[in-house]
Each structure stands twice: as C-alpha cells, then as structure tokens.
Design a binder for these strands. Sequence first.
RNA 1: GGCGGCAUAGCCAAGUGGUAAGGCCGGGGUCUGCAAAACCCCUAUCCCCAGUUCGAGUCUGGGUGCCGCCUCCA
Length: 487
Amino acid sequence: MTLTIYNTLTRRKEPFESRKPGKVQMYCCGITVYDYCHLGHGRTCIVWDVVRRYLEWRGYEVQYVQNFTDIDDKILNRARAEGTSMEAVSERFIEAYFEDMERLNVRPADAYPRATSTLDGIKRLVYDLEQKGYAYPEQGDVYYSVRQFADYGKLSGRKLEDLQAGASGRVEVEDPDSQKKKDPFDFALWKAAKPGEPAWDSPWGPGRPGWHIECSAMVRERLGETIDFHMGGGDLIFPHHENEIAQSEAVTGKPLARYWLHNGMVKVGGEKMSKSLGNFVTIRDILAQYDPMAVRLFVLQAQYRKPLDFTPEALAAATNGWKTLKEGLLFGYYSIINNSWEDDSPNPNPAPNSLIQRFREAVDEDFNFAGGLAVLFEIAKKLQREANILVHQGESTTSVRQLRQQWQTLVELAGVLGFRAEPDEKVQESNGGLKDEEIEALIEKRAAARKEKNFAEGDRIRDELLSLGITLMDRPGGVTHWHGKNN
RNA sequence: GGCGGCAUAGCCAAGUGGUAAGGCCGGGGUCUGCAAAACCCCUAUCCCCAGUUCGAGUCUGGGUGCCGCCUCCA
C-alpha cells in the first residue's frame, strides 16, 4: 500500500517517497506569539500532529520542527500597550501555547527554533542572497528581488503579471517603505531599526529580520537544504511559502521541500476565523466548555484541506461522539472485563487485522482521518455494546480473546490519531457517598413498595438514588440491578 | 480584475466510474406499573444543465452559489 499525499506544489495527489529511506523531515510554520492561540491554530497543530503520528506508526523516523515567530510588529505593539518588552510578551504566549497543546494532546516538536535564536542563520542567508544578486540593500533595509527568481509564483500558481498590488487592501501602496522597493512585490529580508525598537547588529546596520526569512534560515540550519514536508495553514501559501521558496532555492538551487501541505481554514459564520475579523475563539475559551478530545474529534472528522465551520452544534456533536470513543477506549479498564482477562492466554500469533488494514487504507489516501475514524467508531460501538451487555446481563457471546484484541486495536488506532482517554476515578468511586449495603437496602425497600403497588414511594426512592448518580435497572423477573455513573 | 478551492440526508462528513462510510440529532420497536438503562431496526440517488461511457456523486464543458489568497494571517 502506498501513502498518497496532495502536494500544493503540483496540485495533485502523489505517492509519497521520503528522501532518505525510513526517515521523514517535517517543518511546520508555527505561530507569531502575540496572543493566545485560537481554534484555527489548534486545527493546524492537531492536523500536523496526527500526520506526524501516522508517519511514525507507518514506520518512519520523523524529525519535526516548528518555529515561533518572536520578532514582529504585533508583538511589539502589544508590548508597548502593556508597557513591557517584546521578549516578555512572547515568553508569556509561548508558555500559553504549550499549555494549550498539552491539553489537546499535541506532541511537542523535536525543536522549536525562534527568530531571536536564529539571527546568525538569518544574516548568513541574507548575505548569501545579496552575493548571488537576489537581494539589494536600500537605506538600511534589504529587499528580495522577486524578478530575479524565475520560478517565483510556482507554489501559489501565480505569475507576477497577474498579481495586483494592494488588492488585499491591507497595504498602502503609497507607504513610504514601498517606495524603496524596485518592484511592489519585493519583500523585506531585513528591516532597518526604527527609534525605540529592538534591533540586532548586521552588515546592513542595526535592524531586525523580515518575516519570511526566518523559516528559510531555520530549515537550512535545523534540517538541511531539502526537506520532505513543509506544512502550514492554507493562508500561508502566498506570500509566505512562496517567498520561502524564493529565498531558499535561490541560494541552494535545490527544492526546499518535496511536499507542500496546507490545512484548510476554520470558519465562523461562513467566514475565516481570524484575528483581524475579531471572530476568533481561543483554545482556552473552548476548552473551558468542551473536552479537549472532543475538539480533536471535531477537527479530525473533517478532511484536513477543507474549510471547517466552527459551531456550537458541531462541537456538541463531537462531544457526544467522543463519549462513544472514550467508552470504547476505557473498555479494558472495566474490572468485570479486566479480571477475566488474566486467565486468557496471550494471542501468540495475531492474525492480520482487517480493521487495521481498513484504517490504513483510508488514511493512506491523503490523510483521510475521517475515513479512519469510521473504523474507530465501529470498534468502539462494538465494545460499548459488549460492555453494556456484560454489565447488564453478565455474559457476552464474544470471546474474551476477541474482545481484548479489538480493544487493543482501538487503543492503538486511537493513539495514532492522538486520542487520550483516562478513567475518571472521581466519578467511578462516587456512589453518592453510599455504601453498597445501603444502596441494596434502599432497593429492597423500593421492591417492597412496588409489591404493594405503592409506585409513588418506589419512584421516590429511584429518583433519590438517581440524584446521587445511581441508576436502577429493573430486569425481567423482578431483579433490580444498579450502577454508578461510570458503570 | 487575477489565482485557487468547495457544493453529498435535519446538521457534520467520507467516498480511488459500477448501483452512496461514519458521527450527531430524530423516529420506531423489545423490555417496564411507568420509567431508566440496554439491545434491535429505520432516515439521501449526491446544486442545475449538457456531454463522454454499457454504466458518473466520481470524468469533460457550461451555469449558479459559497469560500480562501492576491504581501497581518494557522
């Protein structure tokens, strides 16, 4: 079976071949640390986290690097507004980033280079570009000359003639800085220091790096001239990734990345979630209301390249879906099942698992996690059913060995998708503070009342127990079973 | 204006030319004094039109609608 991946560069699905056998190098454009992450960032992080996990599960040794942009106007503005330093602001939000990601169960990257720690590499790259005639200094700034790079536009599928300066309405074409450029699409590699701004020494005078150059420098420094995957949000295709290609490939003459992968945007009310529109919801706000794994499920149920609408209804649906998966994942922890496993001889030669095959076939097709999830749900539903039958009726028609194998399969596949389920001990142990004997006594009292057709009293006792989290089940034959919230 | 993408049941959503995965919601049934829990079952011809084909959600052309990008963006 072959892993097939949609490559933005070629606009096609291509069979995946790593550069070095068994090894994959990935670089993901991270965040500018001037605020808390919103769900859009969350989606990006979750999607590439799972891609990484999947590749590892497929047997690759993955090297994963993600940057923090910690030199930027927006960070500076925030620092000014708060009367602190750029460094203080970025430190704060980097810390918040890690907290959010830990909760979402996003595995840490192997390295998190920052712009401030990559200045030597950045300056070297700017110098190399200047030497090769791709960059020109202007009043302490240094600009990249897009006309020098013949392939400019190959990633985003644009030609310079097609580009319309200022079409996004974000930049004043009459901006004084624009006047320094030879071409409106030239972009800054290095910006001369302005009074009161943090600055670093350079051959072009004190200043700070432009945005695009840090990623080129980080990839070169940490991973090499050509990597396997370069990832990021779809809004980075142009100009950010286009410019990275221009910078890196002008110097090395080699492809920066073999596969360019982009995830779709999160939308709110039909529009892209973004800081500038003010329609964003931070991850921590969402997690105050929803289970992190429900958020993960919400993200992974959509094809990663398509837009994903954020609505309370969708999150609620994901929350319910997660309950099912969680129950399946916790199947092996139910003592009634677990105990009987002890005697079961280990499966010496597990047969080729068709469930795993189906999962792999689905996900191999351009990371179709939604398709893979269908397999997880199939197993989880089965286990949920079996667990209920065991709890309610005491026996199952499925062999213990089979159940265990399915549970292990579910745990394995859920792990690939980054789902984490922990038994909720607090709920499990709470029988409303009552001892088993006390509960049994109440049930007997209720049985007596019911025998006398005093259903009002019987229902009162049932409601009382229910309010303590104990559910009663009247089985045929007048037998009443009970269980706490968590079985 | 340019480039690109998307349109599948009430909602979310998968789908590699051969008669539509999965999730959520909802409905029906079994059981029950009534419930609860549990179990079982049910819910689409794929935006419109025209082609290619023995056969199209799946390819081609046209249309309509929505979205993203065009130097802040995940």
